[in-house]
Simulated assay, not measured.
Amino acid sequence: MKIGIGSDHGGFELKEYIKEYLDREGISYIDYGTNSIESVDYPDYGKKVSEAVVSKEVDKAVVICGTGIGISIACNKVKGIRCALCGDTYSARMSREHNDANILALGGRVIGRDLALEIVSIWLKTKFEGGRHEKRVEKISEIEG
Rank of each mutant, 00 (worst) to 15 (best):
T89A: 07
K125G: 02
E97H: 04
N99F: 09
A105K: 01
G131M: 15
T89E: 10
G108H: 12
S95H: 09
I119T: 02
K135W: 14
S121V: 01
L85N: 11
S91T: 14
H133Q: 04
K135H: 02
V120E: 01
R96Q: 06
I119M: 05
R96W: 11
C86L: 13
W123G: 00
E118H: 06
M94R: 06
A84C: 14
S121N: 12
G130M: 07
S121C: 08
R109N: 04
L104Q: 07
Y90P: 02
E134M: 09
R96A: 05
E134R: 12
G112Y: 15
A92C: 04
A92V: 00
A84V: 07
K125L: 10
S121Y: 04
W123Y: 13
E134H: 10
H133P: 02
M94Y: 00
G87N: 14
L117H: 06
T89P: 00
K125Y: 12
M94F: 02
G131S: 15
L106E: 10
E138Y: 08
N102M: 00
L124A: 02
L117Y: 03
I122D: 03
R96S: 08
T89K: 07
V120L: 05
N99M: 07
C86K: 10
I122Y: 00
L85R: 08
I103H: 13
T126C: 07
V137N: 05
I119S: 02
H98V: 14
A92S: 03
I103R: 09
G131R: 14
D114F: 13
E138W: 06
K127P: 13
G87Q: 13
A101H: 13
Y90A: 02
S91H: 14
A92P: 00
T89Y: 01
C86G: 05
L106S: 11
V137L: 11
L85P: 10
A84F: 15
V120S: 01
R109F: 03
F128P: 00
D100F: 15
T89D: 08
T89H: 06
R113E: 09
D114N: 15
D100P: 06
L85M: 15
T126P: 05
R113M: 08
E134I: 07
V110S: 13
D114P: 09
I122L: 06
G130Y: 13
G87S: 14
M94V: 08
N99C: 04
N99V: 08
A105Y: 12
C86R: 10
S95L: 09
D88K: 03
A101I: 06
R109M: 05
L104R: 12
F128C: 00
I111F: 10
R109E: 08
A92L: 07
I119H: 05
R136L: 03
G108Q: 08
A116R: 12
F128D: 02
G130N: 08
D100W: 15
F128V: 03
H133T: 08
H98C: 08
D100V: 10
E97M: 09
R96I: 09
